[in-house]
Design a protein around this nucleic acid. Structure first.
Lengths: 158, 158
DNA sequence: TATGCACCCTGTAGCTGCTACAGGGTCAAG
DNA sequence: CTTGACCCTGTAGCAGCTACAGGGTGCATA
């Protein structure tokens, strides 16, 4: 590849991305289609490198691909206010905080269960017991009085 | 459905699971194939309800389907020690703790970035700036001195 | 000149854990 | 006899990649 063009492999190495992922981002509309060489190789330039770096950094910070697409679009409108950018970033932060709270709750529940294990036989295992339906923890079902469908919260996404 | 059999809908309601998910668990080998009625309907019994409750509880605690399969298998060997169960549970707890740590780090980084936003134009937006490659934050690339592929840590799974 | 090797291309399938159809069959009530 | 709620199978979709298969390109070396 000549002096100011980068092959897909160069770009991938420079951003610690897999080659397949770079192609995936192109298909997904996150990275513009680059020029091609005579041999049909992708030929990237500095702007692609900058854009892919931006994408990677945003991904590292946990933004979804949709959010990254939005951020890229907004980042291009240099004279607009950054209110929308702020909304995306704050929304994502709120999501991260929510996940931390969920995981903390989960972690303490798990820790409690694990802490009770007496290292005996499976029959007396408190972990299995904690997972099994008990008198107080049994799903409501005496085969005649089933509960109605409930719209419960979606469960924690790990 | 007769007096001590449950239809898939009954089972789903009793465990707050979608019908499709129950069938999925069967295909995935988590739930044994039940008997069928004359009309080819699945006919579940109390043991299926107990097992599905176990699965749901384990899933709520964030165990993977593979882990749940293992737990179910181990839970069946009542006279063995629960050492393997303990290993799975502790391993999962360690994973949850790791994710919490990752998310806390991520959250504080995000909070710092968001806190710097001056609500001006995109051109001066500190959020975009934080995402962009900078002098100190640029991917190593002067087009002649590219870094070698590095085996970095996998990024945080949100 | 041949050949080997590293790299590139496209296209497709796989991963997790569901969820959502489409296009049909079953069954009890009215 | 129709309506409606349920059930069946099979397949495709979501995110965000990752991993081939089956080929082509480009450069160094024997």
């Amino acid at each position: 590849m000549d002096h100011d063009n980068l092959s897909i492999g160069d770009l991938a190495r420079a951003t610690e991305t897999k080659v397949e992922t770079v192609r995936y981002y192109e298909r997904a509309g996150l990275l513009p289609e680059p020029e091609r060489t005579a041999g049909n190789y992708r030929a990237y330039r500095a702007e692609h490198l900058a854009q892919l770096s931006f994408i990677r950094r945003a991904r590292d910070l946990g933004f979804s691909l949709d959010q990254v697409r939005e951020l890229l679009r907004l980042a291009d409108q240099k004279d607009q206010t950054c209110a929308e950018i702020d909304v995306i970033a704050r929304g994502h932060l709120a999501e991260v905080d929510r996940k931390i709270a969920d995981l903390l709750a989960l972690g303490s529940e798990l820790r409690q269960i694990v802490g009770q294990c007496g290292h005996g036989t499976v029959a007396e295992c408190r972990i299995i017991e904690a997972l099994s339906p008990t008198e107080t923890n049994r799903p409501t079902c005496n085969f005649t009085d089933l509960p109605k469908p409930s719209t419960s919260q979606p469960r924690v996404k790990l």
